[in-house]
Amino acid sequence: MSVDTATVKRVAKLARIAIRDEEASRLAPELGNILGWIEQLGEVDTSSVQPMTAVIPNRLRLRDDVVTDGNIRAQVLANAPQAEHGFFTVPKVIE
């Protein structure tokens, strides 16, 4: 599968990664190679194989409905670039 630079730019934009035109041109064939390799895996017939979710038999653990966390506002806000009155603040995003 070939990846063009427009696709690279679009995926980068969706992931909020800033890339320059020359980077997009360089990444396009690299990503194309990776997808080609994945496509090669697709040649194996796996129609009768259940997707493996873990290498050891393991079940999803569930938690009891008990409040055990929270009230750590200072910690939660510690890394915020800007906070006021207990809120994170961000550049105004209004629809």
Partner: peptide, 18 residues
């Protein structure tokens, strides 16, 4: 996560690191 869900609490007081 184990943080509370009650309505109307102080901002960011019912937030875990998750």
């Amino acid at each position: 996560s184990g943080a509370a869900t009650a309505f109307g609490a102080e901002p960011n007081s019912q937030v875990s690191l998750v």
